[in-house]
Amino acid sequence: MARWSRSQVEAAATDAGSLAAARRLARPGPWSGCGANDTLLWGRCQGSGATPYQVSVDLTTPAWRCSCPSRRFPCKHALALLLLWSDGALEPGGALETGDAPAEVAEWSARRAARAAQPTSAPPDPAAQAARLEKRLALMDAGIEELALWLTDLVRTGLGAARSRPTGWWDQIGARMVDAQLPG
């Protein structure tokens, strides 16, 4: 796989904050166990904790995985590893190993490949969809009829009497309309 340019790495960032943090981490110091093959990039980045974060990047899709608690994808660690690789800072003889990926990186890549190879689900059956829609419409029509009867009874007994009804009385019709799958 061809090495990414710095602009390609920057385009992968989801926000400016992650990219700025990645630029600060894009130096060999906090990195160890870095490696690359034709499709994967991996390494460990020492953060503030005792154990370094495990970072993996699939260069073909692209996809990333990191053991850090960040909810951003890619996180600053994945971006920093990509920046180091794109700048050539992890060359063989330096911090970069070539060849086989560590077991956890290979397993992650294999799981991704297996998911991609699975056939997509079949499209829904139009006859079954039509039957479900017909059943729902019948349920909604019955709910409307029940509401019309309830409103008629409400007017017949007098709107003034409705003010003295407890809240639960009003909630009952609302619950029946929810059961009838009537929105709003």
Score class of each variant (00 low, 15 high):
70 S>G: 09
96 L>W: 04
56 S>Q: 12
37 N>I: 02
73 F>M: 14
101 A>K: 01
77 H>P: 03
60 T>Y: 13
32 S>I: 08
75 C>L: 01
73 F>S: 15
89 A>D: 07
97 E>F: 09
55 V>N: 10
24 R>G: 15
108 W>P: 07
23 R>H: 13
58 D>P: 00
66 C>S: 03
55 V>Y: 06
93 G>C: 03
30 P>N: 04
63 A>R: 08
45 C>K: 13
47 G>C: 07
49 G>C: 14
50 A>I: 00
67 S>Y: 06
46 Q>W: 06
40 L>P: 06
36 A>F: 14
37 N>W: 00
63 A>P: 15
44 R>F: 10
49 G>F: 14
82 L>S: 09
65 R>Y: 07
57 V>T: 11
50 A>Q: 10
89 A>R: 02
85 W>N: 08
105 V>L: 14
44 R>H: 05
90 L>E: 05
74 P>T: 06
67 S>N: 00
39 T>W: 08
23 R>N: 11
103 A>G: 14
27 R>L: 09
91 E>A: 15
68 C>I: 10
81 L>S: 08
52 P>Y: 03
81 L>F: 08
30 P>M: 02
51 T>C: 11
72 R>L: 14
37 N>H: 02
94 G>K: 06
95 A>T: 09
27 R>F: 00
98 T>E: 12
21 A>E: 12
52 P>I: 00
89 A>H: 03
110 A>V: 08
73 F>V: 15
94 G>I: 11
93 G>K: 12
47 G>T: 04
39 T>N: 13
32 S>A: 13
85 W>S: 07
90 L>W: 03
21 A>R: 02
65 R>L: 10
41 L>W: 02
63 A>L: 11
41 L>A: 00
40 L>C: 11
26 A>Y: 00
101 A>R: 02
60 T>L: 14
60 T>S: 12
54 Q>E: 14
24 R>V: 06
91 E>R: 12
103 A>M: 14
76 K>A: 08
22 A>N: 04
32 S>Y: 01
66 C>A: 13
